[in-house]
Amino acid sequence: MTEYKLVVVGAGGVGKSALTIQLIQNHFVDEYDPTIEDSYRKQVVIDGETCLLDILDTAGQEEYSAMRDQYMRTGEGFLCVFAINNTKSFEDIHHYREQIKRVKDSEDVPMVLVGNKCDLPSRTVDTKQAQDLARSYGIPFIETSAKTRQGVDDAFYTLVREIRKHKEKMSKDGKKKKKKSKTKCVIM
């Protein structure tokens, strides 16, 4: 069974824990209790493949930012979460993405942009803004509501699919490099 290491990042209060708990335990946590770091595991079937999701729910508070490099190193894919009623959390996505790329030393890291709290009427981040940002990053965008469960499975499952595509691409690139290195030079 394939294991996928997913990391949920975003500013404090955007609903990272609520999304994760909704996926794992099928219930909505409405009281806000700032996370330092929590880890969850769940076995699911995605596109006919049974897999184990190892999900790291991270601290959004700035005082825990020193811990970010460590979990970013171990993560295979990242859910970059903002709240649709919090423009600052949307603007912060850029910083999370840049930090992930720096730590992973790669421009090509599996990510999904997630606009959470889409059940709320007080939207300050337009869907088109988020779609445009995701398009500019070359990553999928999904709106979710941890409260109603809308888009929750889709967000995590899409990230797994992005990781699969990335692994497939990397193995193809690896095979191309191996083929090239088999060419021999004969000096007579």
Rank of each mutant, 00 (worst) to 15 (best):
A146I: 01
L159C: 05
E143G: 13
I46A: 12
S106C: 12
S106A: 11
I55Y: 01
I24G: 02
I55A: 04
K165D: 05
S122T: 10
A18P: 01
T58Q: 00
T158P: 05
F90E: 02
G75H: 04
T58N: 00
P110N: 03
L159T: 04
H27A: 15
T124K: 10
R164A: 09
I93F: 09
L120P: 15
Y40K: 00
D54P: 15
T35H: 00
L159E: 05
D108N: 09
Y64E: 01
I163G: 02
E31A: 03
K176C: 10
N26W: 13
I36Q: 01
A11F: 14
S39L: 02
S136P: 15
R102G: 04
T35R: 00
S122Q: 11
I21C: 03
K165V: 14
V8Q: 02
D54I: 04
M170G: 07
V103H: 08
A66H: 13
Y32P: 01
Y40H: 00
L52H: 09
I100W: 09
V114A: 05
D153K: 06
F82N: 03
G115L: 11
N26D: 09
Y137N: 15
K128N: 07
F78M: 03
A59M: 00
K180V: 13
A66Y: 11
I46Q: 15
K178F: 09
D30M: 07
D38C: 00
M111L: 08
I187R: 11
K172M: 13
V152R: 12
H27Y: 15
T58C: 02
D33H: 01
R164V: 05
V186L: 09
L113A: 09
I36C: 00
I36Y: 02
K178N: 07
E76D: 12
G174S: 09
K175E: 14
D132Q: 06
G75L: 02
V186Y: 09
M111C: 05
I100P: 01
M67Q: 03
Q131P: 11
E98G: 04
K184Q: 07
Y40T: 00
I142N: 04
D47R: 13
G48K: 09
N26K: 15
C51P: 14
D119G: 11
V152F: 08
D153F: 06
V81N: 03
V114E: 01
D132P: 14
I187Y: 10
T2G: 14
H94Q: 15
R123H: 09
D47L: 07
A130D: 14
D69I: 02
S106L: 08
E31T: 03
S122M: 14
F90V: 11
R123G: 12
K128Q: 07
M188E: 15
Q25F: 15
V29H: 09
Y32W: 06
Y71S: 14
L79C: 08
K178S: 07
V186C: 14
G75S: 03
K5A: 04
I187D: 15
G13V: 12
Q99A: 15
K169Q: 13
D154S: 06
A134N: 10
L113K: 02
S17L: 01
K176F: 09
S145A: 15
T124Y: 08
I187N: 11
K169S: 13
I142Y: 14
V103W: 14
G151L: 14
E107D: 09
V109P: 04
T127S: 07
G151C: 09
V9M: 09
R135K: 15
Y96G: 02
S181Y: 12
F141V: 15
V81Q: 09
F78Q: 01
G10N: 01
V45A: 13
G77D: 05
N86C: 11
L6R: 01
H166G: 10
G75A: 08
M72I: 03
T124D: 11
G15T: 02
T127Q: 06
L53A: 12
L6V: 13
G138D: 04
L120H: 15
D108F: 05
L56E: 12
Q43I: 06
S17Y: 01
T35C: 00
M67H: 03
M188Q: 11
T158N: 06
A155Y: 07
E49G: 10
L19C: 13
K128C: 06
P121I: 08
A18E: 01
V14C: 10
G174L: 08
V14E: 12
Q22K: 12
Q25C: 15
F28D: 00
V112G: 02
V29Y: 15
E37F: 15
G13D: 13
I24M: 14
V81E: 09
Y157R: 12
L53R: 02
D33L: 00
Y4A: 10
E76H: 09
G151V: 07
C185G: 13
V8R: 01
Y137D: 15
D38A: 02
Y40V: 00
K172I: 04
K104D: 08
P34W: 00
L52M: 13
G13Q: 11
R102C: 14
A66T: 08
V81F: 05
K5Y: 02
I139Y: 12
Y71E: 04
F82Q: 05
M111I: 08
D105W: 03
K42D: 03
V8P: 04
T50V: 12
Q129K: 13
I100T: 04
F82P: 02
G138A: 05
F141L: 15
K42W: 07
V44I: 14
E143A: 06
D126V: 06
C51I: 13
I55M: 14
L159F: 02
R73Y: 11
H166Y: 05
